[in-house]
Design a protein around this nucleic acid. Structure first.
Length: 108
DNA sequence: GCCATGGCTAGTA
DNA sequence: GCCATGGCTAGTA
């Protein structure tokens, strides 16, 4: 067993824990979460973990956006739900549908 | 092994 | 470019 590389389950749990710690009214990027877990090049891995999140996990999944401050969900119901949930917490979107990360980004 | 495929991204041209 | 996964070939036994 190589202990140096965390296995899938461990990565999932750590991503979940990080997402849980994003305060209401703020957003974090995939890369930011990856860095906070000590995986500076692991943004894509975080996306992969987020894809597996179920409703029953009861996570604030909608507080995770991409580095451009946009939803990474395909346009449609999912992206609109994400926006609505964030707006309920006071997060604002500009005319282009982006969030200003300097204002609403999570600083950790 | 190799190669394509992901809810991505820092840093050049 | 990065990093993990999954499907599908080589190429040994």
């Amino acid at each position: 067993m190589t202990e140096t590389i965390p296995d899938r389950v461990a990565v999932f749990e750590r991503v979940r824990a990080a997402v849980r710690s994003i305060p209401a009214g703020r957003v974090a990027t995939y890369g930011q979460i990856a860095r906070s877990l000590g995986m500076p090049r692991g943004a894509r891995l975080v996306g992969w973990a987020m894809r597996a999140v179920k409703e029953s996990d009861d996570l604030p999944w909608y507080r995770v956006v991409n580095a451009q401050g946009r939803s990474s969900l395909p346009a449609g119901a999912g992206a609109e739900l994400q926006r609505a949930l964030l707006e309920d917490e006071g997060v604002e979107f500009d005319a282009a549908g982006r969030i200003d990360l300097l204002r609403f980004g999570w600083d950790g």
